[in-house]
């Protein structure tokens, strides 16, 4: 039996219309509602794929305040998870990625009653502007082989290996798709472009059945939800929360405008004649004169 874990995060909803900005253009966190992060959702889809294709059991985990339960429910709808884990404790507050990874590592080790997890999925990064560090740091602490930027994967259950495709795109260089192979267990950070595709009729049937099952399951989340605090996770208080976080946020400020090399000429388009010089320029340049 393949055991799969997904770590997910409750995040501000950055999609159009749902973001609320302050008058100075900064994000209004209080007004912006929280959802299962879009990258976490992609990770859930990957876990669901494992369920349909390989009959995997899925466990979802998140470190966060009690309201993060809502993200676990959304993750269950997507992945039809057998187990939901909320790692919640006052002492986790203020964690940076290293301290977060410490909690997630212990959490993953306790999934399915301590049964070894074969594959852990995480999102590429939390909603834009987050770090993308939590996944690889959790992987390292678990001692799992880390595979990043994965856009597709298959598993050979007999040989216990995973085949993956990943994208490597470096500044000013050709983009490369790399096909790799690695023995289980692995930790996969899934690229946002990943799409699970169910090719055969039987896969599609199975997917539909699991989806139905998922929608039943969330009616009774309580049965699947485990809430674990630092004690239950057997965490060393020195390694989590503020004491376990090497970094702090020291200062937040508005980005000052850079010095400019250009001086814009402002054109009022309400009089078409004002546009004539612009048109001239457009034509000159586009025709290479």
């Amino acid at each position: 039996m393949l055991h799969v874990a997904v770590i997910i995060k409750l995040e501000p909803d950055f999609s159009e219309g749902n973001v609320s900005y302050n008058s100075d253009g900064t994000l209004n966190r209080a007004e912006t509602k929280n959802i299962l992060g879009p990258h976490s959702a992609v990770a859930c889809n990957a876990a669901f794929y494992c369920k349909v294709r390989y009959g995997a059991q899925v466990s979802v985990g998140t470190m966060g305040p009690p309201i993060a339960e809502s993200a676990l429910k959304q993750a269950q709808i997507l992945s039809d998870a057998e187990e939901l884990n909320l790692y919640s404790d006052r002492m986790f507050a203020g964690a940076d990625t290293l301290a977060t990874a410490e909690v997630l590592k212990n959490g993953i080790e306790k999934m399915f009653g301590g049964n070894k997890i074969d594959i852990v999925f995480s999102g590429h990064r939390a909603s834009d502007g987050e770090t993308g560090q939590t996944g690889p740091q959790t992987a390292w602490k678990l001692g799992y082989t880390f595979l990043g930027n994965v856009i597709d994967f298959e598993i050979d259950l007999e040989r216990k290996v995973v085949f993956a495709k990943r994208v490597i795109s470096l500044q000013g260089m050709d983009t490369i798709i790399e096909e790799i192979e690695s023995p289980l267990p692995v930790f996969i950070t899934i690229d946002p472009s990943y799409r699970s595709i169910f090719n055969t009729v039987s896969q599609r049937l199975a997917a539909n059945n699991f989806r139905k099952e998922a929608s039943k399951r969330i009616e009774d989340t309580g049965q699947y939800l485990k809430i674990l605090d630092g004690k239950k996770l057997e965490l060393d208080p020195k390694l989590v929360g503020l004491p376990g976080s090497p970094t702090i946020v020291y200062r937040v400020e508005k980005i000052p405008r850079a010095k400019t090399n250009r001086k814009a000429e402002i054109v009022d388009p309400s009089n078409v004649n004002n546009l004539a010089p612009v048109i001239e320029k457009l034509i000159q340049i586009s025709r290479g004169k």
């Binding site: 990625t97 290293l98 770090t131 560090q133 996944g135 690889p136 992987a139 976080s245």
Partner: peptide, 17 residues
């Protein structure tokens, strides 16, 4: 991005991205 994460996890120190 990933290499910095795993190196600093092993060195148990802090990282900003």
């Amino acid at each position: 991005r990933h290499l910095s994460s795993t190196v600093l996890a092993e060195l148990e120190s802090g990282l900003a991205s």
